[in-house]
């Protein structure tokens, strides 16, 4: 399988260069998250008031902010935190939402009813407002941002996992597994779950974008990561007031970074969907 999947992946990438581009961007982001802090030219926290609000130049590629910190360094260093929050929240919701969807689709009945109503309740709120409320209630910490971002994505994961499970609940291999001596949980985790995994991975990539945006949004309105920590949302918020006075670079570069990251994960999700979609594997 791995060789044919790899071959198929190579085909999708060559047939659809956008996916290849997204993959390259993704690798770049991951490298920035891992090695960024040790590679950047300036300390992202070091202020240099003498050089405040410098326009982009050879010295400061993305310019400097109101207290003279190097925006390029801050933008790169922020990658780890922003992607980290998003990845953690996606992992969290993948585990809980995915499992809830599996159970819901497989057993049906009251379990399905309860999980369905919980999802509906979450969906009834404007999701960003719900995330705000959660962080405001639980406290302004990184774990709470992760939790809030995870909760608002919960219904999405439940729905996808449930729909995929329902399709396979009656599959021949489920009966075959029972005949082979698996009980319900064994069938669910050992047989059904691996089959819905590819589609869940696609889902993860697609929601990574939302998660990044959500985490940055919370920080933007002051309910997330606090200054002076480098984080794209705060940087945009801080830079917003300088746009009117002509210092556009303070908000533009973190904003562009945010946009690129979301864009990258959405494109990657579309590409992954093509790779796992068996209808395209002919």
């Amino acid at each position: 399988m791995s060789d044919t999947a790899l071959g198929h992946a190579r085909h999708v990438v060559t047939e659809n260069p956008v996916t290849g581009f997204a993959l390259a961007l993704f690798i770049l982001f991951v490298l920035a998250a891992i090695f960024g802090p040790s590679l950047v030219p300036y300390d992202p926290l070091a202020s240099d008031t003498a050089n405040a609000l410098q326009a982009p130049s050879g010295q400061h590629w993305f310019g400097t902010d109101q207290i003279g910190r190097d925006i390029f360094s801050r933008v790169v260093v922020a990658t780890r935190l922003d992607l980290g929050i998003a990845a953690a929240s996606v992992a969290l919701v993948f585990a809980f939402g995915g499992f809830a969807g599996l159970v819901s689709g497989f057993f049906g009945g009251w379990v399905d009813q309860v999980i369905g109503r919980v999802s509906d309740t979450i969906m009834a709120f404007p999701l960003f407002v719900l995330a705000m409320a959660i962080v405001a209630a639980l406290g302004n910490t990184v774990p709470n941002i992760v939790l809030a971002t995870g909760i608002i994505n919960f219904p999405l994961y439940v729905r996808v996992a449930r729909a995929e499970t329902v399709q396979r609940r009656e599959a021949g291999f489920v009966d075959a597994a029972r005949i082979a001596g698996h009980r319900d949980m064994g069938v669910l985790l050992g047989q059904v779950a691996p089959n819905i995994m590819p589609i869940m991975v696609v889902q993860m990539s697609l929601t990574m974008g939302y998660a990044i945006l959500n985490a940055a949004g919370l920080s933007f309105i002051g309910l997330g990561v606090r200054a002076p920590t480098p984080e794209w949302g705060i940087m945009v918020a801080e830079g917003a007031s300088f746009i009117v006075s002509g210092e556009w670079w303070v908000a533009l570069f973190p904003g562009a970074m945010l946009m690129t990251a979301v864009f990258c994960f959405n494109l990657l999700g579309d590409g992954l969907r093509d790779i796992v979609d068996p209808r395209r594997r002919t």
Binding site: M1, A171, G172, F173, D175, A177, I179, P194, N195
Partner: peptide, 14 residues
């Protein structure tokens, strides 16, 4: 034990 109708469908694709 059972031998199922559609062997393709009754073997877990993974």
């Amino acid at each position: 034990q059972i031998v199922f109708q559609d062997a393709g469908e009754s073997i877990n694709p993974r």
